[in-house]
C-alpha cells in the first residue's frame, strides 16, 4: 500500500543523476562493431557451426541486457525514490506479501524463462551435433608442445601448422596429443575441442567460403602456449586439388650444386634428429615435417612470417622468437646457412 503512495512522488531529478549506464551502453555498442574483418573473432563467423553459436550469443545477450536493465532499474528506483515518514523507523516485515513477491519474481518467472532457455539449449545442441556422415576429407591433428602436426591419412600427406580444407564442405577432424592437453580452436568456424592424452576427440569443420582462418591453442600448455597458432586455409575445389597434388609430391633430388650442398648441410647436421623430409633419410618426429616447408605461410606455429630472413634467423636462434621451444640454436657458417636456406626454400 505504501508503494502506491510513493509512486507519484517519483523523483525525476534523482533518476537523471549521472550513472555508469551510458558508459556500459557505449561499450556494448563497441561490442556490436567488434569482430568485423578479424581473422580470429567468434563474432565474425565463417562457417555453419560458428554462425549458429554466434546467433545463440546475440539472442542470449539481448535477453541478458533486458533482464539486467529491468532488475538494476528496479534496484536503483527502490534506492533513489522519494521517501516519506521517519527515515529511521523500522518498517515491519510483511511475510505474506514478501513471500508472494519473492516466489513470483524469484522462482516462477525465472523458472519459466529457464525452461524456455533449456529448450533453446537443446535445440541449438541438436543443430550443432548434426554432423554430415560423408565428410569431404578426414584430417588428423596431433598436438605437440608447441606446434600442430597435420595428417591426411587417406592421401599420405603430413604437414604442420597449416590445414587446408575444401571450402563449403564438411571435414572430419580427429585430435590427439603427443604430450600435454591442448585445445584446437578456430573461432570463425567452430568452438573448441581438447586434445587429451589417451583420448581421441572429433570435430567437424566447415568453412562457407574460401579464405584463411586463424586458430590458436586454447588450453594452457606450458611456456609457449601463446605461440601455438595455426591457420585453416579453405580452398575452392580446384585450388584444393592442386594443393593436395603438390603436397603428395616427394621432392625430387636437387640437381643444382647449391641445393645439393644445402641438402647435405641439412642431412649432416642435427636437423635430422627432429625433422622429416620425404625422400631423404631425415625422418625425425620431434619437430614439424619439412617436406613442403616453403609452401607454408608461417614459422614456429604462427610465431613469425615464413620469409628468407626469418627462416635464417629462426635456424640460428629460434629461442629468440619462442623462448623454451625445443629447437636448439644451430651453429652454421654463413655459406652453410645460405645453402641450407636455398635448399629449404626449394621445398614447395
Amino acid at each position: 500500500m505504501e508503494d502506491s503512495e510513493r509512486t507519484p512522488g517519483f523523483n525525476i531529478r534523482s533518476f537523471l543523476r549521472p550513472r555508469p549506464l551510458p558508459i556500459l551502453g557505449a561499450l556494448l555498442a563497441s561490442l556490436v562493431l567488434a569482430g568485423c574483418g578479424d581473422r580470429q573473432s567468434a563474432l565474425d563467423p565463417q562457417g555453419p557451426a560458428a554462425s549458429t553459436i554466434a546467433l545463440s550469443w546475440w539472442i542470449m545477450l539481448s535477453i541478458a541486457a533486458i533482464t539486467f536493465s529491468i532488475v538494476m532499474g528496479l534496484v536503483l528506483w527502490a534506492v533513489f525514490r522519494r521517501q516519506t515518514g521517519d527515515p529511521d523507523e523500522i518498517s515491519p516485515a510483511q511475510p505474506d506479501e514478501d513471500s508472494r513477491f519473492i516466489l513470483t519474481w524469484g522462482t516462477v518467472v525465472p523458472g519459466l524463462v529457464l525452461i524456455l532457455f533449456a529448450g533453446f539449449i537443446i535445440y541449438t545442441e541438436v543443430a550443432l551435433a548434426d554432423d554430415d556422415d560423408n565428410p569431404a576429407e578426414r584430417i588428423e591433428i596431433i598436438g605437440h608442445q608447441w606446434w600442430w602436426e597435420v595428417r591426411y591419412p587417406d592421401r599420405d600427406i603430413i604437414t604442420a601448422n597449416e590445414i587446408h580444407i575444401p571450402a563449403g564442405e564438411p571435414v572430419d577432424i580427429t585430435v590427439t596429443t603427443a604430450d600435454v592437453i591442448h585445445s584446437f580452436w578456430v573461432p570463425q568456424l567452430h568452438g573448441k575441442i581438447d586434445l587429451i592424452p589417451g583420448i581421441t576427440n572429433e570435430i567437424q569443420l566447415e568453412a562457407d567460403d574460401p579464405g584463411t582462418y586463424r586458430g590458436q591453442c586454447a588450453e594452457y600448455c606450458g611456456l609457449q602456449h601463446a605461440h601455438m597458432a595455426f591457420t585453416v586455409v579453405a580452398d575452392d575445389s580446384d585450388d584444393y586439388a592442386a594443393w593436395v597434388d603438390q603436397q603428395q609430391q616427394v621432392p625430387a633430388n636437387p640437381e643444382d650444386q647449391d641445393l645439393i650442398a644445402g641438402r647435405q648441410v641439412f642431412l649432416g647436421s642435427a636437423c635430422v634428429y627432429c625433422h622429416r623430409i620425404a625422400g631423404t633419410n631425415a625422418s625425425g618426429e620431434i619437430g614439424p615435417d619439412l617436406t613442403h616447408i616453403a609452401s607454408r605461410e608461417t614459422l614456429g606455429a604462427g610465431t613469425i612470417e615464413n620469409s628468407r630472413g626469418n627462416l635464417a634467423a629462426w635456424i640460428i636462434d629460434s629461442q629468440h622468437f619462442k623462448p623454451g621451444n625445443k629447437m636448439p640454436p644451430m651453429d652454421l657458417s654463413g655459406p652453410e646457412l645460405q645453402q641450407l636456406i636455398d635448399y629449404l626454400e626449394s621445398l614447395e
Binding site: I53, S56, I121, T124, H190, G191, K192
Partner: peptide, 10 residues
C-alpha cells in the same frame, strides 16, 4: 549453452 561455452571457454 554448450556450443557457446565451447566457443568462449579459456
Amino acid at each position: 549453452m554448450i556450443g557457446f561455452d565451447q566457443q568462449v571457454t579459456d
